[in-house]
Simulated assay, not measured.
Amino acid sequence: MTRNTLRLLSLILAIPLCVNAGTLANGKWSLADCGNKPEVPAIDQTNVEAFNRSVAKINTWQQQAKAYYECLVKEANTDNAVIADTANAAQAEYRATVESIGRQADAAKKKLESK
C-alpha cells in the first residue's frame, strides 16, 4: 500500500473513535447525548393562578426544547460530516488503489515487452 492509502485507512478507522453522535439502526436515526425530548406542557385554564403556573412551565419548556433541538442539529451535522468524510476517504483509497494497480500493471507490461 502507498503512504497515502495508509493515511486514508487510518483516518477511516479513527473517525468513529473520535465522535460520539447519533446512531443509525434499521433506517431510524436516534440521538446519543441530547437526553429526552421535553414534553410540551398543557395550558391550564382553570383559573388565573393555574394559567400563570402553566405559562411558567411553558417558558421553562421553551428553554429546554431550544437546548434539545440545538443538540439534535449538532449531532445530525456531526454524523453527516462523519459519513461524508468516511465515504470521501474510501473513494480516495479506491482511486489510489486503482492508480497503484495501474502503475504495477504498466511496469509489468514494460518488463515483459523488453524480454
Rank of each mutant, 00 (worst) to 15 (best):
T5P: 02
L9E: 08
L11G: 08
L13F: 06
L13C: 04
P16W: 12
V19I: 13
N20F: 15
N20H: 13
G22P: 05
L24V: 09
N26V: 06
N26Y: 01
G27P: 06
K28L: 12
S30D: 13
L31A: 04
L31K: 01
A32T: 04
C34R: 08
V40R: 03
I43R: 06
I43A: 07
Q45S: 09
F51N: 01
N52C: 10
R53G: 12
S54A: 06
S54N: 02
V55M: 07
V55G: 09
K57N: 03
K57D: 05
Q63L: 11
A65V: 13
K66P: 14
Y68E: 04
Y69H: 14
L72Q: 13
V73K: 15
A76Y: 05
D79M: 00
A84Y: 02
A84N: 14
A84C: 11
A84I: 08
T86Y: 01
N88H: 06
R95T: 09
A96T: 08
S100L: 03
S100D: 12
I101V: 03
R103W: 07
R103S: 15
Q104H: 02
A107S: 00
A108Y: 05
A108V: 07
K111N: 06
K111D: 04
L112E: 02
L112K: 10
S114A: 02
